[in-house]
Design a binder for these strands. Structure first.
Lengths: 183, 183
DNA sequence: CCTACCGATCGGTAGG
DNA sequence: CCTACCGATCGGTAGG
């Protein structure tokens, strides 16, 4: 058993029981070690949570950077954002579940950094919506409401892994959201 | 301090720290009692969670029944569902937060009942989408995906209480979702 | 509603 | 990676 396997097993447990309700003894049992042996691989329960949340935050941050690098129009950029969210959820469903629901259990220092990354991501996302409105590609009244609605509508995606083909979800969401923003 | 006040205080704490990370000592401090005194009003921590989750489930179930009683067309029914979700979130934001995120910590028996209610609610919701598609009011490919996307898009609403006027949210969501389903 | 207390479980350490 | 163990905290009870 290695560090990577322990963190993946932890993400599985955190997804199904939540961070706080998962004990290090649960995790030890799942990976076939004595509880104390976990600490040869990781320093604390907190550290596992941090690693899961930060690796997801990185994926979104890097995905956003790639999207912003090309000078596409806002419609194509939004399509790429939808793809980013669905593909990330399908590639790492348990980690995304933890990233969605358990980030608030990060310790104070990590929480500040996490929220800084998220704020930057959201700023970039909203800017795309603003550009789409300016160029009359998107229509909406309140930017903040439309933004949180779109983000919220992605959050179930990790649950779809065993139910819906990835491309079907991407197609349906592309149709749904681009239509929602149409004039 | 009465039972009702204790449950509302618990909902507040569960919203901000989660059910598992909230201790009965946290709750006692918040309502100004010794921890053991809570048990004059409630029987267990589980019971509080059950009361919060079930009262929300009731609100949605009863709201759905009222909507189905009138023979409106699917478009108006969907508008009323949007209103039901936003108004319920605005009337009981903490309870809805717990209902959204902590229902999985219900004990086994309550969980079965809870999921039965939810399944029935979802069946009714999906039937409205199906009728809308049949009568060519709504357009979509995959019912399940569009359904979970719409439901998911409501889940942030309780966070909007101190940010957006209720009617603004309802209007924006009506526009967004009805547009998303247009031909 | 309080004082006093219980057994169970928690995250984590010492030492090999 | 294990055995043995720690202090802290958990939900909850007894008795008044």
């Amino acid at each position: 058993m290695n560090r990577e396997g322990i963190i993946l097993a932890a993400a599985d447990l955190f997804e199904s029981k939540g961070y706080s309700a998962t004990s290090m003894r649960d995790l030890a049992e799942k990976v076939g070690l004595m509880p104390s042996s976990l600490y040869s691989h990781i320093n604390s329960k907190q550290e596992i949570l941090k690693e899961i949340c930060m690796s997801c935050a990185d994926l979104f941050t890097k995905g956003m950077e790639e999207i912003l690098m090309k000078a596409d129009d806002p419609e194509l950029q939004l399509q790429k954002l939808i793809m980013l969210h669905i593909e990330t959820a399908y590639d790492h469903p348990s980690s995304i579940a933890v990233f969605n629901d358990d980030w608030r259990h990060l310790n104070e220092k990590d929480l500040v950094y996490f929220q800084k990354m998220r704020t930057q991501y959201e700023k970039n996302f909203k800017e795309i919506l603003i550009q789409g409105k300016k160029s009359h590609k998107f229509s909406f009244q309140n930017l903040e409401i439309v933004f949180v609605t779109i983000l919220s509508s992605f959050k179930w995606a990790y649950k779809g892994v065993d139910k819906f083909p990835k491309n079907l979800v991407i197609d349906e969401l592309n149709h749904f959201i681009l239509n929602a923003l149409k004039y």
